[in-house]
Design a protein around this nucleic acid. Structure first.
Length: 150
DNA sequence: TAAGGTTTTCCTGTTT
DNA sequence: GAAACAGGAAAACCTT
């Protein structure tokens, strides 16, 4: 169901995850990837009916979590490294920042700034530090990411 | 209006 | 040298 929603509603003229188009190109092309408010306006009624909460989370960590749980919107930006332990990797840092920027209507967002916000989550136990580049882990105070608790 | 939480922005320094 | 990491500091933004 969501497949038809994302493909026909988001990107009427192309598949959502086009390997030939970079994310930079994708996000700078309004025809290919319409502004976020437009997307949510079209999607929210459908998402509400389908029970999918993605794209609506207000916090960064929830946005990241929901992206991990939504392969249709993820497009390889984030990948699970260890699903059971909540360890994930940022594969396309620039695309992630761009997507978060669209979510917050902030076209000056960068991965450097996004990652600063992620580092603040170490203090609150939302995320735990992993000693590898671009790898993060959900902490004890993060919820909704476990497979058996969805 | 005030306060608190959550980023955002900028910065310097370090590591890979 | 570029990209990413580590945090401090302060400002912005939003909610209560």
């Amino acid at each position: 169901m969501l497949d038809s929603v994302t493909h026909s509603t988001f990107l009427p003229n192309a598949s959502f995850c086009d390997p030939l188009m970079s994310w930079t190109d994708l996000f700078s092309n309004e025809e290919y990837y319409p502004p976020f408010e437009h997307q949510t306006g079209m999607l929210i009624p459908l998402l509400e009916n389908s029970g999918i909460k993605s794209l609506q989370s207000s916090h960064l960590w929830e946005f990241v979590r929901d992206l991990l749980l939504s392969p249709e919107e993820n497009c390889g930006i984030l990948e699970w490294e260890d699903r059971e332990q909540g360890i994930f990797r940022v594969v396309k840092s620039e695309a992630l920042a761009k997507m978060w920027g669209q979510r917050k209507k902030n076209d000056r967002m960068t991965y450097e700034k996004l990652s600063r916000a992620l580092r603040y989550y170490y203090k609150t136990g939302i995320l735990e530090r992993v000693d590898r580049r671009l790898v993060y882990k959900f902490g004890k105070n993060a919820h909704g990411w476990q497979e058996d608790k969805l």
